[in-house]
Design a protein around this nucleic acid. Structure first.
Length: 876
RNA sequence: GCGGACGUGGCGAAACUGGUAGACGCAAGGGACUUAAAAUCCCUCGACCUCGGUCAUGCGGGUUCGAUCCCCGCCGUCCGCACCA
């Protein structure tokens, strides 16, 4: 009898080797079975995996193994999101080349992932910094350029004057560069853009088709795209008030109905009219400069006072040319939304109201809530921005907001100013084009050449790839490609004259916008093999963190559309199913009291519970340590648990099982030592129960019992099988875990009886079948342990290649059911009765129950509610 | 400010489409085995009392035979966006 403890240190590497040698997880594109593509967001090779990776990849692996067992041809690949700034920072700080640093990190992380026993097709692995990959990305860029999906424009960037580099908005903290601490300047640089706004409407509309995405993510994308319906309205300038030649200004509004409430126009500091006014008046120029300086810093925006300055320019109201309004430059008007100019209606917009109070402009109420009395309706400190009835609006009076909108829209589109309509309906989006230029070394080079004579010339495809040079230095700030001695000097592909390479590289979000497509045929010379891509895409189940809800997922949706337009794929939505998993969180510990104490790692302390109070003490000294809040694992708070340590002491299966237990997968899971030990106890218990009975189960044909004492064994096995299947289909891993515990609890006694040599042939057959079902349904979560049990039962073929068991409906259905019996809505009794009993028979049986008879006390019930196979409620 | 989600025992959580609230796990308490410990096994475990009940799903109402679930109003926590005209 094999009753030793299960030893993952022995079993796990052994099975990993067996799987790998048999290539069981390598996927053939030509396999005729139905396809299933499961993908977890690929990692950045920082050097070590963390618990978040473990949870993410454990979930994906359960899906992959489950679907594989269900008979699908499963694609489950892995790669590396390998370009990016940390490699350059490491180069600068540690004098190691970004390439070397990155590939070393990949090697060690790959070893860690392998130790988890994931069912990945490693034959398709690539890193985005592989020349083979960015070569094809450059190819895609050129194709997109040809289709007009790429352009250059002068644009504002956050410039760090110390590091000589552009910073992303996230890298600007309180107006300062995150590394240098220098005050960030706004600079204008010519940058490359992808025309994602060409797809604004489609990206918005298609969200409705993504019914296997979380509602939350769809909503976030919807808000990010930010569609609004309104009008552009042209206002005639009063000629004698304008310093130079302009004759009109166009505003964008979503509320043309409130036009009679207008009391001023406000324009952005960068608006052409503002520039004109500034040129003629130093005071205006000074104010415009001040507005520009305050630009983007988030903190500044929050507290910034609404400020404006009258330009002296006047406009005529579009519905009454005799009505003149002032034009202000205002610090809250954005040049890059709408037209950079608005009309202010103080009664209908809080910000306009504040502005009007400050500069003493008229406040005319034009919309009042339906049912209010026009005589009494006034605006105090709060604007009314809801719908209602028009007042003080001449020919609009009495109309609803909506009717007024339509009336004004019609009137302005029919009125001419010069030879164009005065106003037009216009849909606006908040979504901006995607700026992809980065002044960095460690990214995909943008494959274009600048020629004095020919202008911007794309690199001919035959000259691809544009390789990153290896001999670069990081001892000075700025982009190493810019100061490389030779790399940037190149002959113009068109005229052959001296020309200059583009030294910008692409945003790393470009790399991650199509890697899932490349996985379908990573060996292909072209960016894709369209046949393979169209076969595999969309990804059936994509799993990753909610932090990518907008950027990565939106960019990927755009990029797939762009690849469709350039003929590389036929689909436009890359991810059919999306699941956003929660984080792994942990208690924090710090020395002393108060918020200044030094953080302490969980590995350095011991936790004890006495009299219901948990205390933490430092292992080394016994000093008491304060237990703090539960937070996302992070190095700075030292509340990290290294997956390697867990795998070394408990094994990968325990780690996988634990991160899937307890918490629903989209919520945070709290890592705790006690919880891990619980999971580990489970693995040991399962092994003990199976291995001790194994000798007496070998050679027994698995067969469900149809009657007698073993029937219950077969019933719970089949019922659990069905339930776990449903749970896996819904990614409800925590519920699957609970059901598997129930099954183990139920099988403990029968397995012990078999181990003791008891039970007849029918019983053993039923127990064997139940044990196999148990092992198979737990296998996606704890694959090594399951293989070990499977082998112990004498099964020759490896479990990874076994088909999923089938449940028998006859064993799932309950023949006798227990009906709760309520009296006046409170449970008073139970009735056990045949499942298919007639309603009359049920009612008769219920009325015979002692509890019912004493409650009725001879009277007739007022009402009897019989919900078949659910509940009975008697109203007395 | 706008938008969204969530709130159930000491803790993580279950509960189908409105139908037995608390499955399963953790922690805790008691017991068995043991020279002892570990491991393992068994029992108890929402609150209160008169042991039959009563009260319990953030709070207050409503709809219903019946509400964790639906509706209205509060309170709290978390997340996203944030001068978007």
């Amino acid at each position: 009898m094999a009753s030793e403890r299960y030893n993952p240190r022995d079993a796990e590497p052994r099975w990993q080797k067996i799987w790998s040698e048999a290539k069981v997880f390598e996927t053939d594109n030509a396999d005729p079975r139905e396809k299933y593509y499961v993908l977890e967001m690929f990692p950045y090779p920082s050097g070590r995996i963390h618990m978040g990776h473990v949870r993410n990849y454990a979930m994906g692996d359960v899906v992959a193994r489950y679907k594989r067992a269900r008979g699908y041809n499963v694609l489950h690949p892995m790669g590396w999101d390998a370009f990016g700034m940390p490699a350059e920072n490491a180069a600068r700080d540690n004098k190691v080349h970004p390439k070397e640093w990155t590939y070393q990190n990949i090697a060690s992380m790959k070893a860690q992932l392998k130790a988890m026993g994931l069912s990945l097709d490693w034959s398709r692995e690539f890193a985005t910094c592989d020349v083979d990959y960015y070569h094809r990305q450059q190819h895609l860029f050129l194709d997109m350029m040809e289709k007009g999906l790429v352009y250059r424009k002068l644009s504002k960037v956050n410039w760090d004057p110390v590091d000589h580099t552009v910073l992303a908005n996230e890298q600007v903290i309180d107006g300062r560069g995150w590394r240098s601490g220098a005050l960030v300047e706004q600079r204008e640089l010519v940058q490359w853009f992808f025309k994602i706004t060409d797809f604004s409407q489609d990206l918005l509309d298609a969200l409705d088709t993504l019914d296997q995405w979380p509602e939350k993510v769809r909503l976030m994308q919807k808000n990010w795209i930010g569609r609004s319906e309104g009008m552009t309205i042209r206002w005639e300038l009063v000629a004698e008030t304008v310093p130079a030649g302009q004759s009109e200004v166009t505003v964008y509004t979503t509320r043309p109905d409130t036009l009679f409430g207008a009391s001023f126009l406000a324009i952005a500091a960068d608006h052409p009219l503002a520039r004109e006014a500034a040129a003629a008046n130093p005071a205006i120029e000074a104010f415009a400069d001040e507005c520009r300086r305050h630009g983007t810093s988030l903190a500044a925006l929050e507290t910034a006072e609404k400020k404006g300055m009258d330009t002296g320019i006047r406009v005529r109201h579009p519905l009454d040319p005799s009505w003149e309004l002032p034009v202000y430059i205002a610090n809250f008007v954005l040049m890059d939304y709408g037209t950079g100019a608005i009309f202010g209606c103080p009664s209908g917009d809080q910000r306009d109201l504040d502005f009007a109070r400050k500069y003493d402009l008229p406040v005319v109420p034009v919309v009042m809530p339906a049912g209010d009395d026009a005589g009494n309706f006034t605006i105090g400190d709060t604007a009314y921005d809801g719908d209602g009835v028009m007042i003080n609006s001449r020919f609009l009076d009495g109309l609803s907001t909506e009717e007024a909108f339509e009336t004004v829209a019609r009137r302005l589109s029919e009125t001419m100013l010069g030879n164009k309509p005065q106003g037009e309906r216009k849909v606006n989006f908040r979504l901006r084009d995607w700026g992809i230029s980065r002044q960095r070394y460690w990214g995909c080079p943008i494959p274009v050449i600048h020629c004095e004579v020919c202008g911007v010339v794309p690199v001919p495809k035959k000259d691809l790839p544009v390789r990153l040079p290896d001999d670069v230095t990081f001892d000075q700030p700025g982009n190493p490609l810019d100061r490389h001695a030779t790399w940037r000097h190149v002959a113009c592909p068109q005229c052959g004259g001296d020309a200059r390479r583009e030294t910008d590289t692409m945003d790393t979000f470009v790399d991650s916008s199509w890697y899932f497509t490349r996985f379908t045929a990573p060996w292909q010379d072209e960016p894709t093999d369209p046949k393979a891509a169209n076969h595999w895409l969309p990804v059936d189940q994509y799993i990753g963190g909610i932090e990518h809800a907008i950027l990565h997922l939106l960019y990927s949706r755009f990029f797939t559309r762009a690849m469709k337009e350039t003929g590389h794929v036929e689909v436009k939505e890359p991810f059919k199913g999306l699941f956003t998993q929660g984080m792994v969180v942990h208690e924090t510990y710090r020395r002393g009291s108060g918020p200044s104490g030094e953080w302490v790692a969980p590995a350095d302390i011991r936790i004890e519970e006495t009299d219901g109070r948990r205390r933490a003490t430092l292992l080394a000294t016994g000093e008491e340590i304060a237990i703090g809040s539960i937070e996302k694992m992070s190095k700075s708070k030292k509340n990290v648990v290294d997956p390697d340590d867990i795998i070394a002491s408990y094994g990968a299966d325990t780690a996988r099982f634990f991160v899937l237990s307890d918490s629903p997968p989209d919520r945070d899971v709290i890592w705790s030592e006690a919880g891990v030990e619980g999971a580990h106890r489970f693995t040991q218990r399962l092994w003990r129960l199976i291995s001790e009975a194994a000798d007496n189960l070998k050679g027994v044909a698995p067969a469900p019992a149809r009657e007698g004492e073993a029937l219950a064994v077969s019933q719970i096995a089949h019922r659990t099988l069905k339930a776990v299947q449903d749970d896996y289909d819904k990614l409800s891993f925590n519920k699957a875990v609970a059901r598997i515990y129930e099954l183990v609890n139920a099988l403990a006694a029968p397995l012990a009886r078999v181990a003791a040599g008891e039970g007849d042939a029918v019983f053993r057959g039923a127990v064997r079948e139940a044990a196999e079902i148990l092992v198979q349904i737990v296998a996606p979560m704890t694959p090594h342990l399951a293989e070990e049990c499977w082998a112990a039962l004498g099964n020759g073929r490896m479990l990874a290649q076994a088909a999923w068991p089938r449940y028998d409906d006859a064993l799932v259905v309950e023949n006798e059911i227990m009906l709760p019996v309520q009296i006046n809505g409170k449970k008073r009794a139970e009735l056990t009765i045949a499942r298919d009993a007639e309603q009359d028979a049920v009612q008769a049986a219920v009325l015979q129950l002692d509890a019912v008879r004493s409650a009725l006390d001879g009277r007739q019930p007022k009402k009897i509610i019989l919900v078949p196979q659910r509940i009975v409620n008697i109203v007395v």
